[in-house]
Design a protein around this nucleic acid. Structure first.
Lengths: 203, 203
DNA sequence: GACAGAATCTTTACATTGTTCAGATCAATC
DNA sequence: GATTGATCTGAACAATGTAAAGATTCTGTC
């Protein structure tokens, strides 16, 4: 077995794991440091040897959620194989659906990851999707494929990054907070296809 | 002077006002019921005669923020007069900018209004912008005007509702949480113009 | 104008929380 | 085997949300 830096294993990771599970169930606002410590049968003070305060623990938890989110996005991306037009188009939709589904299935986790607790530092470029994690990279690949196949024009490819990212994220949060019905998702997917002029004009 | 239902005036409204101010400064998470009561020189328990708990007070405060947000949107809409193409196009941009600017200028208020505290009930229709408050109505008017002038096609008009709303809201929250730079805003506005095919083909 | 009752607010109290700090326990090194 | 450093516990403190009971002020009626 691996090293035993503390009596029970790796407390830092265990705390994040327990916090993630509690956030998933009740939401970050209702998570108490004492509670997650108790589930690990550990004194509340023990957490302070790994995190300066509760917010730091939640921040780390948000980071873990972000990784989980990236995994889901990658699964969605890889769920469709092939280089044909249908596959490439399907991949963009699959990404969008996975994004929105994650927000719907795990609202508390989504809020934590994309909320105030996890401030992703922005790089020097005004918008570098690759810095936005795996999800951004996958979107770039999907759009590149679409342009390579001639499904979308270079101009659409260029505008696609902001447009897709903003629109999908916006709809995800609007659904999450109850400002729009989930039934609007197909309409958004249609709108994106329309916006990128993916209306089947190219073989 | 108006009625004096309590010693200081209208405590319910005063509480919401004080809470709004505190939320504006430090954010909803760090607002304490006792604190807002103290700023009004009122006992903490007094608040419980008007709101069942702290969340209810914050919910009402979020409602007030929503109204404020609607006012800002209306000001933006009315800041551009005229029925010409330039005016109508400008109104759409002005709405988008006002939306994003509100999020940037009042991040804590925006988070409260569009966050978990204020769950707007969704009507029967899968997406009724008018139920989303004043902002939705104004977007509808802007899109209608664009179509009437022939700046956008009926299909673009139809897709514009979800697309504009989602994209602008998404960018606002992405900027708010630090996932994207504010410098991406012009790119989004361009992308929306491109998406709706407002590229100057029509006089 | 006085009084009853309702509305409004205060006082007190309690449980829970984040956080600190001094000390106990354990692991590994010399 | 003693020392040292890391790891965790225990007790304690201040702040918070909230409940219950009592005090105060207003309102309307006789």
């Amino acid at each position: 077995m691996t090293k035993d830096p503390y009596h029970h294993g790796d407390l830092a990771a265990a705390l994040v794991g327990a916090a993630l599970e509690e956030v998933r169930q009740v939401g970050a606002e209702k998570v108490s440091l004492r509670g997650v410590a108790a589930t690990l049968k550990v004194s509340p003070s023990a957490a302070y040897h790994y995190f300066p305060d509760k917010d730091a623990l939640l921040g780390a938890t948000g980071g873990a959620v972000f990784e989980l989110f990236g995994q889901r996005m990658q699964e969605a991306f890889e769920s469709i194989s092939g280089d044909g037009r249908q596959a490439v188009e399907g991949r963009l939709s699959a990404l969008a659906m996975a994004y929105i589904n994650f927000a719907r299935d795990e609202p508390h986790l989504f809020r934590l990851a994309f909320g105030a607790y996890c401030v992703t530092p922005i790089g020097d470029k005004f918008m570098d999707l690759s810095e936005a994690g795996l999800a951004g990279t996958l979107l770039i690949r999907a759009l590149d494929d679409l342009q390579r196949l001639g499904v979308i024009a270079p101009e659409a490819r260029q505008h696609g990054e902001v447009l897709c990212w903003s629109a999908v994220h916006g709809m995800a949060t609007l659904i999450l907070e109850g400002h729009i019905s989930e039934l609007a998702v197909p309409a958004l997917l249609d709108a994106i296809r329309f916006a990128l002029a993916m209306d089947g004009k190219v073989a």
